[in-house]
Nucleic acid binder design. Structure first.
Lengths: 320, 320
DNA sequence: ATATTGTATGAAACGCGTTTCAGAGCAAGA
DNA sequence: TCTTGCTCTGAAACGCGTTTCATACAATAT
């Protein structure tokens, strides 16, 4: 395969001139321009992008860390990023961690060795201190409240939104409210847990550990929730479900067991995924595509560390 | 940031020796090895991966073309690839096309300019001739029957499986069978269409264009199907749905409209996604994670063009 | 007529790790 | 003693495009 030198020779010009033609720099005479183009066409020339990357010290690649790629939550986030990436002529490198710390560190290493220009972490596992060690190598953007850490972030205030959701349920008459979360640890889960405890305290409601259902990510996880639910003597009357997928799963399984929604159990989802619209699930909308877009934007704007809070919106439908 | 030259100078050796240490080549004395390691640690040295890529002519990156990334079908496919990629120390570059041809061509160009070592196309838009122009630049792997084209493929024989599904429904007493597909064009859709027509002909059943529902991808698309269904005077008694997600959506909407499954309408899904298990949807299992794994494997084995047919398995549940 | 400014072009340095090749030193086998 | 074969090391070439700097000439301004 021909390289830039071959083209230069063939067109009777210097490599500089070829480079100028390739990159549309001014100051190349029409004749030479033509000669170079002809030579490139003749050889079916393609510049070696890795040489460009080395030379420029950039790859136009942005890493995206997700625990799993087959969840609509991350799907929408990625969609937003991909759209924005397209605009900026960037590509996304997907790094699936399955919530294993070493994979996240691998992603950070990619930033260090310049394989990617920036890194977006959609769901963090590493300690902040670990992340901090890598900020010197390029922009790192988080999808959680990262204020106070030297990285940009676009996030939902889960304390606030969880509190709002709880108060909404309370005001609808619910005193016994349970909730589901994904991971037990993590900033978001911690915020929710705190919101929950503060809510209980405020209203003088006793804490019931059986009302909390961790490890709920997908539609099918709803099945287990319902199974555990029916075995409870003292059941919650409402469930705050941190994913519409899980909410849909719970709703479906409840129907099968003749648990009527919302009469027997109120359900409130999160995200406002399309499935919640079809199933008429009351939910808190998070504009995930927009969040993805903003995350990418922050990754591009590596100079400045910024934090953007995304407001959520309550969407009342038929499950509360 | 220090480069290999700096390290060499600092350790009092040549760059060759440093390179040897980095890559664990034999024939480096213990002392020099130690000296190099110390220097690297001192400088917090990180080799520039782009220089490696340029030098080696490889990037350890594999491109993955998908129309959308937020669909569980592609999610599982990617999951399989990601697992295998990890094993081989490769990373995946996600290229989302939204079914736009130019984006797919962009992906092919990435192969040409050596930004990726191989390309996996999960859902093709380009003509075969276009793909053919790029096979010289690296392995291209398809997730559809690509026999006869100079690319590897792992695929389901959709003619065969569709026929099997139709016969299964027929044998259950269904004569009026409709089906949903995603895109109208595409190898898979063509195979299914042919299977459908052959099936009708074989059993002397007249063709009814209203029984075909295109553009069905997601859960929410099931809503439209049901809406159109109820407006039909002459309704199908069974529906072959080419995605469990859509099947789940249809099932949910039917329940809301008091259309009883399978009494009023039999539904058969595809993929055996977790959702189909929870909702007890009869489906044809496609081992997508396994398919993803194999696709990646073929991408690695660029020397040989191979084709692997994946058998599907009928999973009888409660919707037929 | 002279000083500026703009256009056009190429040599060479640069980014940086890998790999080939040549050579030196030393031990085991002939 | 001589050959063969390891072990160890480094200089230099290689992969390839970008960018800086110097230069040359034409055109406009003074």
């Amino acid at each position: 395969m021909a390289n830039i030198k071959d083209i230069a020779k063939m067109a009777g010009v210097s490599v500089t001139t070829v480079s100028r033609v390739i990159n549309n720099h001014p100051y190349v005479s029409a004749e030479k321009q033509e000669a170079v183009r002809r030579a490139m066409e003749l050889c079916n020339y393609q510049r070696n992008i890795n040489a460009v990357h080395l030379s420029k010290g950039k790859t136009f690649l942005v890493g995206v860390v997700v625990p799993f790629s087959n969840h609509p939550y991350f799907g929408l986030l990625i969609e937003g990023m991909a759209n924005e990436a397209l605009q900026h002529n960037y590509k996304l490198v997907l790094i699936q961690t399955n919530y294993e710390e070493n994979k996240e560190i691998e992603a950070l290493a990619m930033l260090k060795d310049k394989q990617i220009d920036a890194l977006i972490i959609c769901s963090r596992i590493c300690e902040w201190s670990v992340i901090g060690d890598f900020t010197q190598y390029g922009p790192i953007v988080l999808c959680e409240d990262a204020r106070g850490n030297n990285v940009s972030s676009t996030f939902v205030d889960h304390y606030k939104s969880f509190t709002a959701a709880l108060e909404y349920l309370y005001q609808k008459g619910h005193k016994k409210i349970g909730y589901t979360i994904g991971r037990k640890s993590g900033t978001n889960s911690a915020q929710r847990s705190k919101a929950y405890k503060d809510f209980l305290e405020k209203h003088g409601i006793p804490f019931n550990p059986h009302f909390i259902f961790p490890w709920c990510f997908n539609f099918e996880d709803g099945e287990l929730v319902v199974e555990r639910l029916v075995q409870l003597n003292d059941r919650p009357t409402a469930l705050l479900v941190t994913s519409d997928q899980v909410a849909a799963g719970i709703l479906t399984c409840c129907k099968d067991r003749n648990i009527f929604i919302p009469k027997d159990l109120a359900i409130m989802g999160f995200d406002n995924q399309p499935i919640s619209k079809v199933m008429r699930i009351t939910t808190l909308e998070i504009p995930l595509v927009e969040v993805g877009r903003k995350l990418f934007f922050q990754a591009m704007d590596g100079e400045n560390v910024t934090h953007e809070e995304i407001p959520v919106r309550l969407i009342e439908r038929d499950t509360v």
